[in-house]
């Protein structure tokens, strides 16, 4: 039980990181980006590629399975994922913006998600890969609870990232502009905000968070080209639970989904774990479609 709780929080924190990026882009760019989860895959694999190119030039840090190279690889992955997001926006989403059927852009993101996944498969192959071959020993923290040092790192890193993002959104002009754009794009422009610039930064932030989530996820599971595909539903569920556009909500939503997934094994066979986010999603949509923290503003209602 304790172990399941800990695992749930761990998965939940990774889902939360991905969901923050998704909720920001859904709130500000105003469409459900099906390709967001593939940025997680892309980021994870870019880090793998960067690691391979750098070679193991430093020993792992302390009890962790990785060292400085992985941190550098994570930064490189964030940059490359941001570039991918900006490129997709430039080539696909922007030209489709304002087309008659609003859902065209959502659908195009569905097509893009397939392309990204297949390109990763083509470059890196379909078999499972790891960042490191170092075997880690789980540390017993409490009776019945063992945690890998890497998992502690993931948790700590997520907390730091969420707090920094919070300060960024609350304290900086760009953060303010992003919040304004999420509420009312026209009024934001009237206020002298160049929304194209803000949108570009939104992509960069969303993509970087996705890349970080991908690398952290890759530390705790095997890398496969399908990791993003399997995370898509949990991400959407987390975003909708927390209310679209709500960063704090996405974090809580991510934790709820992560915990529900890992605790579900006590009720249903583990092979149905992937359906848990869907069940939660249905319940939320039936009971409270604006999400837990959603206001009437970004109302699920149209």
């Amino acid at each position: 039980m304790l172990q399941a709780l800990a695992d749930g929080i761990l998965t939940g924190s990774i889902i939360a990181l991905g969901a923050i990026g998704l909720t920001l882009t859904m709130g500000i760019l105003r469409f459900a980006n099906f390709a967001h989860a593939e940025m997680i895959t892309w980021g994870a694999y870019m880090a793998l590629g960067a690691l391979a190119l750098m070679g193991p030039f430093m020993a792992p840090l302390g009890a962790l399975s990785f060292g400085l190279p992985l941190i550098i690889a994570m930064v490189i992955a964030a940059v490359l994922t941001s570039l991918l997001a900006l490129m997709i926006d430039h080539l696909v989403f922007r030209p489709l913006h304002g087309r008659p059927n609003d859902m065209t852009i959502v659908f195009s993101s569905f097509g893009v998600s397939l392309l990204v996944r297949m390109v990763v498969l083509l470059i890196f192959g379909g078999s499972a890969q790891y960042y490191s071959n170092t075997l880690q020993i789980a540390v017993p923290v409490a009776p019945g609870l063992r945690i890998l040092p890497d998992q502690l790192f993931v948790l700590g890193f997520t907390i730091v990232t969420v707090i920094s993002l919070h300060f960024f959104l609350q304290r900086t002009r760009l953060g303010l502009a992003m919040r304004a754009l999420a509420e009312n794009p026209t009024l934001a422009r009237v206020n002298g905000i160049d929304t194209r610039v803000v949108i570009r930064w939104t992509w960069v932030i969303g993509a970087s968070l996705a890349a970080v989530a991908g690398v952290l996820y890759g530390l705790t599971v095997q890398l496969r080209p399908e990791i993003g595909f399997h995370l898509l539903l949990p991400l959407f569920a987390a975003v909708i639970i927390g209310g679209v556009g709500n960063v704090f909500g996405a974090v809580v939503g991510g934790l709820i989904v992560g915990l529900a997934e890992s605790l579900s094994v006590f009720i249903i066979p583990p092979s149905y774990k992937l359906a848990v986010p869907f069940i939660i999603l249905l319940i939320v949509l039936y009971v409270r479609p604006t999400g837990i923290f959603g206001s009437a503003h970004h109302a699920g209602a149209k």
Binding site: L176, R179, A180, L187, V190, N191, G192, D194, H297
Partner: peptide
């Protein structure tokens, strides 16, 4: 472009939705 108007010394107050309700007065 719309966002250039402020710099060009024209200000506009729309008829409805002319403040950001989710932001503070100071923001």
């Amino acid at each position: 472009p719309t966002h250039g108007m402020a710099a060009a010394s024209i200000a506009y107050v729309p008829q409805t939705d002319n403040v950001f309700t989710t932001l503070t007065i100071n923001e």
